Amino acid sequence: MKILRTLSVLSLALLLNGCGNLRIKAYQTYQAPADVKNLVVTGFYIAPPQLPTVPAGDADAFNKKVEALSEKINASLATNSDRYYNTLAEGLQMQLNLNTIAGADMAKKPRFDRVKQKEERELLKVTGNPKFPTVYLSEEAVQFLELENGDVKTFIEESPRLRSAVRNVTKATECELLAIGYARLVIDKVTTYGAKANLRLLADIYLFDEKGELVGHTYGETEPHTFTGEYLGDFNDVLASYTSLQAEMLTALTLVEEEKVDED
């Protein structure tokens, strides 16, 4: 008897062939056990744009154009933090078929006030560029991460304190599973004199169980968009691509190994 495995990697490769230049990776796939019924989506964080630093002179010239739009870019990021949050909650509910709560529904839980009272939104502030001073998070979300200089990714992926925080929130919301989303715009590949550069949207979706253990993680990245840095529309177009990017990310998140038995 010969056992053949159809790996999720193969399935993912087939998926990516239809996605242009999207980059999708499931660092850890997830299948909800039968006893998992409830999912809480606590928030979707959007970081300030990551500006280019090299080549130094060209990058400086390009960054001046971006910073001239900073007020409008920040307003767009704030708006999209709300949109991404709702999109993530809706997408996870459809993909995982779980009772999903987010936003105002979290506040209806009797012990949620304890979590909300400990919320520290000041930790969303960042230093380095006064034009882009904050990580954006929907007002309906809850900020329970202990961030340093607004560094969402490092806390989620490396902090030993995260497990305890997740356990507290899942208990307060009466859920067995918790989801967090995180996205950022990245500008790189600056051309001579800062004439043009590439703009991409990078996103992560994390799932944690009620013990605070990471049980699912998917990553997505849009294809590079070449732009001059002078028009808000370029930023909005890339930000608008999140919905389709998320669909591919969630598909990758739930791909599983399949076993097929082939008898010789």
Results as ranks from 00 to 15, higher is better:
L4I: 05
L14C: 02
L15K: 09
L16Q: 14
N21M: 03
A32T: 02
K37N: 15
K37A: 15
N38Q: 14
V41N: 09
A47S: 13
T53A: 11
N63W: 04
K64L: 05
S70N: 06
S70V: 06
N74Q: 14
L77S: 05
D82F: 08
N86Y: 14
M94D: 13
M94G: 01
N97E: 09
I101F: 04
A104P: 06
A104M: 13
D105P: 01
K109C: 10
P110E: 15
R111M: 07
K118F: 03
E119L: 04
K125P: 00
K125Q: 13
T127W: 05
G128R: 11
N129C: 10
N129G: 07
Y136R: 15
S138K: 14
Q143P: 01
F144Y: 10
L145E: 12
D151C: 00
S164V: 04
S164T: 11
T170Q: 02
K171C: 02
L177Q: 05
A179D: 07
G181Q: 07
L185I: 08
T191N: 01
T192W: 05
A195Q: 12
A197P: 01
A197G: 03
L199T: 01
L199A: 04
A203G: 03
L207I: 06
D209S: 03
E213T: 14
G216E: 10
Y219D: 06
G220Y: 10
G220E: 10
H225K: 15
F227T: 05
T228N: 12
G233T: 12
D234R: 07
D237I: 00
D237V: 01
S241R: 15
M249A: 01
T251I: 04
A252L: 07
T254H: 10
L255S: 02
